[in-house]
Design a protein around this nucleic acid. Structure first.
Length: 770
DNA sequence: TATATAGTGTTTTTT
DNA sequence: ACACTATATA
């Protein structure tokens, strides 16, 4: 592609960003300003115009999803060689480097990657070993301290030098022991991946040199969210040729809690005085109104780089703000709005996103989405890979791959139950410590361990034999074959089948899903390895698996929404104490933390392309108690004239206001009243969403409410619901064109639902005697 | 050793 | 509200 052709597709500022190919470049890219476009064109320009070999380019993104998108867009532009470009996240980049040079740091190439559950297990066992009273310190608290130390590249030794007080010394000691334990297990946690790569480069200049030569051109996206360790890594890599282009927006810095250092972006020009600075301030995403609101809110922050987004997009409709008496009604309203948007206009479910501050809020929405039969997907929260059954199976695979990983071996030695108890496990662990063996090696010699009965030793031997067989299988077979063998020999699935519960069935489906993931991995990789698969599993974020061609409403936290956009956005829970969180309000430095919350609010607002709805609940159940709260200060920071408040639209249309704000849910009733005849809704989730909420499957409506204004069941009948199973209809009440059905589900309690949305199937006639 | 039950304690955000 | 932990008991 010609230079002219590449540049002609860009605005003046974007063009500057593309043409400044050499030396340090800082691109301050406001929300929706086409920064990915600029980056993609920059890469195309480097390759096609300047003749840079694709393999010399490294682009670091925040998520795998962003990396995939960037790669495919470059592919579309230049049509070749994009596979050679390194586009990855910090973590996957580091793993790739570390696998090659792990030996230099005292690990093997099969090192495990520990997630937060694994970290917690290690810390718990250290607490036990050191007999630490959890009233004085908490495992998670210590892990947080260690994590922030690593973000700042502070080693255990340095930590103990800095913190000489009693508590600090205690943390330092735990930090040291924690690192030792991880080394023994040939394991690294997420933070280690970055730190160890920095350590590798700093202690092995020759290795650093290899990568400096290799990556002549570096680009870092979401630069405002890099921490000190990541900054150091980037500085080292760019140290020789200095072709470093960073893209970010200080207003979207929302990961301070994870060590993000906003100074990295604010002082880029001081560190690189010759930096070319480009500001992208034209927004291509949102309506004028949405942008005005965003600008006003963020303007309340101090100490930011001066900028103001503008757009040529139409003004669009006003923001909507609604309050409800509780979280249920809030969720009902949002579901109703989404249902009516999909039915009455040409919206798809995937045009809509519900954003909230905390994962806990997703529950309410999930329930209402199921009842309303809306296809949805919850991003984040309870991760697929953190489910018990998945963690168990993965622990087997990790044991096969890395026998030094004592944590995993101990997890599965008695799963499924083999009659090996805690005391036997402890004796093996002690024996391992004494003889400097791994736990698995010690288990292999169970018969020699004093205190272990012959019967117990026999059981342990069965386990170690099993691992041996699986190891042999791993040598010759594929990952999916290994997995099937594993399931066959352990009888894991059989045990679940024997349980016969719905829950066990869901677990089996999850395991099947895991099998397909291994198959999928093997198909898409040229050289699939067990380590590679396990690493992918560890580093894949939930958001990475969100697909564009999947027609569902997306539910996620504001943090997860960064980098995404939707025509219709709902921001729920706009309440003081929730957003901004009470943590921020009551912190030592409320000013600083509330500014971070405000940036989060800014991120949320700027996700919306056409319509933004903000909602709040006056009362909410949190941790088992009812709490009332005031409307969020962020609402008050949005100019009144940009918002349409409760009842205003109805007033204009000459409607009655009697329902506004109170009542069951005025919004939903309105939406329902305005609905055209129902169009068939896709099948809703079966087992709590994530995996099984499938859209687009042919629906088999068994009740035909709405269209005909009738339902084929009556009070007393038994009906079936997709999630709640069967229940008895207690009450059937006409409400407008629809019916309000009250059903008693034995295991879920009494639920009220809208007939046209709940799609209840009649399964039995009532005998009239209930 | 395995299971049932009472008691305990919950940082909001995540690679 | 909920999950996890320690304890008692079979």
């Amino acid at each position: 592609m010609e230079a002219q052709e590449i540049l002609s597709q860009l605005n003046e500022e974007q063009r500057k960003a593309v043409e400044a190919s050499e030396g340090p470049v800082l691109i301050l890219a406001g929300a929706g300003s086409g920064k990915t476009r600029a980056l993609v064109h920059r890469i195309a320009y480097l390759i096609d115009v300047l003749g840079v070999s694709p393999g010399r380019i490294l682009a670091i993104t925040f998520t795998n999803k962003a990396a995939d998108e960037m790669r495919s867009r470059v592919d579309q532009m230049i049509g070749f060689g994009s596979g050679e470009i390194w586009v990855s996240t910090f973590h996957s980049l580091c793993v790739r480097i570390l696998r090659r040079y792990a030996e230099l740091l005292g690990y093997t190439r099969y090192f495990s990657i520990y997630d937060s559950d694994d970290q917690l297990s290690v810390m718990k066992s250290l607490f036990k070993q050191k007999q630490i009273d959890t009233r004085y310190m908490k495992e998670k608290g210590i892990l947080a301290r260690i994590s922030s130390a690593k973000d700042e590249l502070i080693s255990p030794e340095k930590f103990s030098r800095i913190h000489t007080d009693f508590y600090g010394a205690k943390v330092a000691d735990l930090y040291r022991s924690y690192q030792d334990r991880l080394s023994e297990n040939n394991a690294m946690d997420f933070d280690d991946l970055i730190c160890n790569t920095v350590r590798l480069f700093e202690t092995h200049p020759d290795v650093l040199g290899v990568y400096q030569e290799r990556f002549r051109y570096l680009m870092v996206d979401e630069y405002q969210d890099t921490n000190t360790a990541q900054f150091r890594l980037v500085s080292l890599l760019a140290g020789k040729y200095r072709n470093l282009c960073v893209v970010g927006d200080d207003d979207q810095s929302i990961y301070k809690f994870r060590g993000a250092n906003i100074r990295n972006i604010l002082s880029f020009e001081e560190i690189f005085p010759d930096a070319v600075v480009v500001k992208l301030e034209r927004n291509y995403r949102s309506t004028g109104t949405i942008l005005d609101a965003a600008n006003e809110v963020i303007h309340h922050n101090r100490g930011r780089k001066d900028k103001r987004l503008w757009t040529k997009n139409p003004e669009g409709s006003k923001l909507r703000f609604r309050t409800f008496s509780n979280g249920f009604e809030e969720a009902e309203y949002i579901c109703g709005e989404i249902a009516s948007a999909v039915r009455s206009s040409s919206r798809c479910y995937r045009d809509c996103a519900v954003l909230y501050r905390t994962n806990a809020q997703s529950r309410l929405f999930e329930e209402k989405m199921i009842m309303a039969n809306l296809p949805y997907r919850i991003v984040g929260g309870i991760n697929f890979y953190s489910r018990k059954e998945i963690k168990d199976i993965l622990a087997y695979l990790k044991t096969v791959d890395n026998g030094s990983d004592n944590l995993q071996v101990q997890r599965i030695i008695n799963v499924p139950k083999r009659g090996i108890g805690g005391s036997t496990i402890q004796k093996i662990a002690d024996f391992a410590d004494e003889g400097a063996l791994t736990f698995l090696e010690a288990a292999g010699r169970a018969a020699d361990i004093p205190g272990i009965s012959a019967a117990a030793a026999k059981k342990v031997e069965h386990f170690t034999d099993l691992i041996g067989v699986l190891r042999a299988k791993a040598e010759v077979g594929s990952i999916s074959e290994l997995l099937r063998k594993l399931l066959e020999l352990t009888g894991y699935v059989e045990e679940l089948e024997a349980e016969g519960t719905e829950e066990a069935q869901a677990r089996i489906e999850n395991i099947n899903e895991l099998i397909s993931k291994t198959v999928q991995y093997e198909e898409e990789r040229e050289h699939p390895t067990l380590s590679g698969f396990l690493e992918e599993v560890a580093l894949i974020a939930d958001i990475d698996t969100v697909s564009e061609d999947d027609d569902r409403v997306l539910l996620m936290t504001l943090h997860s929404a960064k980098g995404l956009e939707f025509p219709l956005v709902f921001m729920a829970g706009m309440e003081e104490g929730l957003f901004p969180s009470s943590m921020a309000i009551n912190s030592d430095d409320p000013m600083e933390e509330i500014e971070e919350e405000r940036r989060l609010c800014y991120v949320g607002i700027t996700r919306a392309k056409e319509q933004l709805t903000l909602t709040c609940a006056r009362e909410r159940m949190t941790r088992g108690e009812r709490r009332r709260s005031e409307v969020s200060r962020f609402i008050r920071e949005i100019p009144r004239e940009l918002m349409e408040l409760e009842g205003e639209r109805e007033a204009k249309a000459g409607r009655k206001l009697e329902l506004s704000g109170w009542g069951v849910n005025a919004g939903m009733r309105q939406a329902l009243d305005a609905l055209p005849p129902e169009k068939p809704a896709p099948q809703a989730a079966l087992y709590g969403g994530q995996l099984s909420a499938r859209a687009g499957e042919p629906s088999s409506p068994s009740s035909k409410a709405g269209e005909t204004g009738t339902v084929d069941y009556a009070e007393g009948d038994t009906v079936r619901h997709v999630k709640f199973g069967s229940g008895t209809v207690l009450e059937l009440k006409k409400s407008g064109k629809d019916y309000l059905v009250t059903v008693d589900f034995p295991s879920w309690g009494v639920k009220k639902m809208i007939a046209s949305m709940a799609r209840l199937a009649k399964v039995g006639q009532g005998d009239g005697s209930w």
